[in-house]
Computed example of a mutant assay.
Amino acid sequence: METTSPALVMLPGLLNDQRLWAYQAQALAGERVVQIADLSRDDSITAMAHRVLENAPPRFALAALSMGGYVAFEVLRQAPERVERLALFDTMASLDSAERAATRRGLLELAQRGRFIGVSPQLMPRLIHARWLDSEVSRTVQQMAIAVGKEGFIRQQRAIIHRPDSLPTLAGIRVPTLIVVGADDQLTPVAEARLMHERIAGSRLEVLPECGHLPPLEAPERSLTLLREWLLA
């Protein structure tokens, strides 16, 4: 495809695959080169970012959700000159609280012992807004988790547990930055998005009503509109 528009690289979150961004990627593919990275193959954020950079065009716009945001910050540390603009969906720059880190370690231990069922019915309400619990959205979430699988989950969870603190990275971000968060996100709440917004100069913050942790699936049209506006900013 011949285009002068900047390429777009999209990073999924924990237990997500290309289906997370499929709607937006398909809509934008007629306007620019679009890549959705596979973040299930490495067990460190550093290695994930290195693989993204190996496969990405020389310069690109970078959109990321949740764990993908942790990778995006590492991409900026490794090769800031290659990133033209940044979109951060439902992620955070700070490290986990002690309680959350303990929960992650517990889930990792269960998976290592063979107890991996993807996204459990108990976890689903923490991922998506209640209105999507019995819908194609929840089915897609479970299908993605099964596709990533136990070994992919173990690698990703290890990477998240040992990720670096990205708060010091925020002040150095000088590209057009969009920050999006679901108003009802229980995993990376609005307070974390506001903290990033305060520390990234000139960033734009959008809080989506009746939306949980996965706006590209829960609010696909609004997410697409925000991405289009950001790409043209």
Rank of each mutant, 00 (worst) to 15 (best):
M1F: 14
T4S: 08
S5V: 08
A7K: 05
M10P: 01
L11Q: 00
L11E: 01
P12F: 00
G13Q: 08
G13H: 03
L14A: 05
R19I: 08
L20P: 05
W21H: 07
A29G: 09
R32W: 11
I36L: 12
D38Y: 00
I45K: 00
T46E: 13
M48E: 02
A49N: 02
H50M: 12
V52W: 01
N55M: 10
A56Q: 11
A56H: 06
L65S: 14
M67T: 10
G68M: 09
G69V: 01
F73H: 00
R77C: 11
A79I: 07
A79R: 06
E84A: 09
R85W: 10
L86T: 06
A87D: 08
A87S: 14
L95Y: 05
S97K: 04
A101L: 15
R104N: 11
L108Y: 03
L110Y: 05
G114Y: 04
G114S: 05
F116S: 07
P121R: 08
L123M: 13
L123Q: 05
R126N: 12
I128F: 15
I128C: 10
L133E: 00
D134L: 05
D134F: 01
S135W: 13
E136H: 04
S138F: 04
S138K: 03
R139W: 10
Q142G: 08
I146T: 05
E151A: 14
G152R: 08
Q156R: 07
D165S: 06
S166A: 10
T169E: 09
T169Y: 03
T169D: 07
G172V: 05
V175L: 11
P176Y: 14
T177V: 09
L178H: 09
I179P: 00
V181R: 00
G182R: 02
D184Y: 01
L187R: 01
T188N: 06
V190T: 02
L195R: 07
L195G: 02
E198N: 10
E198M: 10
E198P: 12
I200G: 00
G202M: 03
C211E: 07
P216N: 09
A219S: 12
A219W: 09
A219M: 13
P220H: 12
R222E: 15
R222Y: 10
L227I: 14
L231G: 03
L232P: 02
